[in-house]
């Protein structure tokens, strides 16, 4: 009983540490700049920061861009990584482990190193300043292939053999056996992917020029004001605006997410 109490305390502490920045962001977003750091209970409340932030950048348009961009990347990675992961997990072909090692090497390369080369490629394809140009370097993912391969390998060989005896084709086995079994991994992977690409900043900034194409993070950078003091109220308001869809989605589907993570880990 005492042990349980300690665990609960620890969980509450961790939870508080996690929520504190968000709580502070909310606090300073609804107060005028002069009272962002003094927590007077009766400080004047205001929604003007949100209006100011919203007026400084086309947030609506950028939000749509981000959603489209993340959807392209998510769909492409699921479609492209699944067969690759399956081949590495269950098919036998010469050089399989060598090719897989090469895929893994890509995990070690920081994307920033490839920026100039990627820029050249996108330039050669005439895709500079387009949503597809932002997405293209991210359509395949070594991380995704690795993660799904591990998930596929946990499917018992006996089940696979049984399905084969039932006369299921390769594609049917993938669709009816492997995909359902790996569902928690897909959800966990999708979540990590969405939050990464929602937050990705430097590449979208470098490869785009028009306001109409840029994702939300690039607009958000407008509030980093090194030549002046920082207006925390406006920054936090803008940050809350741009993360709101993610936070709301997470709160709505929280139970499913947590369960998937638990199951993905249990595997």
């Amino acid at each position: 009983m005492r042990r349980w109490g300690l665990e609960a305390l620890g969980a509450w502490l961790l939870g508080a540490m996690w929520i504190l920045p968000l709580a502070w962001a909310l606090w300073s977003a609804i107060h005028p700049p002069s009272s962002t750091q003094s927590f007077g209970l009766f400080s004047p409340l205001t929604l003007r920061n949100f209006a100011t932030a919203w007026g400084m950048a086309p947030f609506g348009r950028s939000m749509v861009n981000t959603v489209v961009l993340v959807s392209i990347v998510l769909a492409a990675q699921f479609v492209l990584c699944t067969p690759a992961a399956f081949a590495f997990a269950r098919l036998r072909f010469p050089g399989r482990d060598f090719v897989f090692a090469i895929v893994l090497v890509q995990l070690m390369v920081a994307p920033e190193v490839l920026m100039v080369e990627n820029f050249r490629t996108i330039g050669a394809l005439d895709l500079v300043n387009s949503l597809f140009g932002i997405a293209l370097p991210y359509l395949g993912s070594a991380f995704g292939i690795f993660l799904l391969r591990q998930a596929f390998r946990t499917v018992p060989e006996e089940l696979d053999a049984a399905a084969r005896i039932e006369g299921l084709s390769l594609r049917q086995r993938l669709w009816k056996l492997y995909l359902p079994m790996a569902r928690p991994t897909y959800i966990a992977y999708g979540l990590v992917l969405v939050s990464f690409h929602w937050n990705n900043f430097l590449w979208p900034l470098v490869i785009t020029n028009s306001v109409g194409i840029r994702p939300i993070t690039v607009q958000l950078a407008m509030f980093s004001t090194t030549d002046q003091g920082t207006n925390w109220s406006i920054i936090t308001a803008a940050t809350l605006l741009s993360t709101a869809p993610l936070v709301i989605a997470f709160l709505l589907f929280q139970r499913q997410f947590v369960q998937s993570f638990m199951r993905a880990r249990a595997q």
């Binding site: 489209v68 392209i72 492409a76 005439d126 387009s130 949503l131 597809f132």
Partner: peptide, 16 residues
């Protein structure tokens, strides 16, 4: 995939 093709077209027009 449809989305992808559309944004590719969009990219092409902004460049054109």
């Amino acid at each position: 995939m449809k989305l992808t093709r559309r944004s590719m077209l969009a990219g092409a027009t902004t460049l054109a």
